[in-house]
Design a protein around this nucleic acid. Sequence first.
DNA 1: ACTTGTTTTATACGGTTGTTTGGACGGTGG
DNA 2: CCACCGTCCAAACAACCGTATAAAACAAGT
Lengths: 231, 231
Amino acid sequence: MSDDTQQRLLEAAGRVFADRGYRDATVREICAEADVNLAAVNYYFGDKRRLYIEAVKCAHRSMIEQVPMPEWPPETPPQERLQQFVRTLLNRMLGEKNVGWRPRLMLREVIEPTEACRELVDQYFRPHFEILLGILRQIVPADTPPQVLHQLGFSVVGQCLFYRVAGEIAGMMIGPREHAAYYSREQLADHISRVSLAALGCVAPFGSVSFARGPADPLSTSSVGDPAEQN
Amino acid sequence: MSDDTQQRLLEAAGRVFADRGYRDATVREICAEADVNLAAVNYYFGDKRRLYIEAVKCAHRSMIEQVPMPEWPPETPPQERLQQFVRTLLNRMLGEKNVGWRPRLMLREVIEPTEACRELVDQYFRPHFEILLGILRQIVPADTPPQVLHQLGFSVVGQCLFYRVAGEIAGMMIGPREHAAYYSREQLADHISRVSLAALGCVAPFGSVSFARGPADPLSTSSVGDPAEQN
DNA sequence: ACTTGTTTTATACGGTTGTTTGGACGGTGG
DNA sequence: CCACCGTCCAAACAACCGTATAAAACAAGT
């Protein structure tokens, strides 16, 4: 039964690559973690590089089925879809309880793409980005140029990615108490959804007060009126 | 004069560490780049790790004076300040013409903080974040809770950070033509400012047309959006 | 039981790494 | 002139890396 050791090797490789990086991770440590012989990596994958590539593929494959995208009934309003999309995205990026190494491994691939990257883009990132674009298309005017739509998508994704990339730094800046009280995944997802929907004009903006008394701008006066928020 | 070789060593270390990573960068390559003897790193810094720490400090120190924050006259409207802040942030993150290694080095430190990190937070990130918070405070209502303000700041920073972290992937997804046409720093800064200001209610939101003439949408008034709810 | 093919093991090899060392060089004060 | 001191250099060191190999263990068909 080679399937067992091969699978165990893939998972151990994913873990070690994720928190040591490609060069820092040694095949010896990976094999020790997987409890297989040192030569197994050469026997099954031939190479450290090919082991890495397969580990990345395996990681993203099992992450898809771990946190699947929600299925919406056809009449679900786009605002609700966006909110749930953000929630799912954040859950994937921050990782589930004991598989936190998977998103970390993918993040490394995002920051400096290797050979495993193109497949990751085609099979993982682009399909999900298309879902997001589909949601946004239902919200913005029909004549919105595609590049604007794309950058809107990147704005949503970027807000989520921030807490994966700089979460530790953010925690340092606000202190542990505020972090513990206001940075759960649900709270973050709610905030990001609200910012995005406000930018899209679906919910009330954050600073409507100073907007109400701003300079007479034909664009802004004709837009969203004022949801009675006069604090 | 040791000061010369020491400084040259620091800069070369910054460059090599930035695009090779800590472990991948060899002291041999650093010394070759700096055109000094291999033993110099041990003579001046004692250790590879301490050389790295000093290189990070040196990098962020010289980056501050490279792209300074704009000085605003006291009556500058916060909208304009935010726009220029985003522009500066983006310029720093994507790097100036021939010093692109500095932000890359700092990004590595953000993603997995080491010993040099706390100093970076105290001297670099927090002061600039405070500037951003000061701008936002002038826009949102006075009774906005601090944690909401902080997360608004993170939403702005996150949108910028995205193009530093995932810029390559983004380029893969949209194709080289759209990237060349719409992803200059000025265009990205304008987009991010517009999204942020729209979320804050300072400019018209993106979906105002479809929002204004759309069917009486129950969501925008009752379900998701009503700002009466407080978390 | 013997052969055949697959999987696992122990061990070895060449190369690269960070670090150390002993001394050469070149000014400076006595 | 000489000893001194900070700086630099070439060479070497021990440790560890990825990879290769040959033999052992195993499974299964005949």
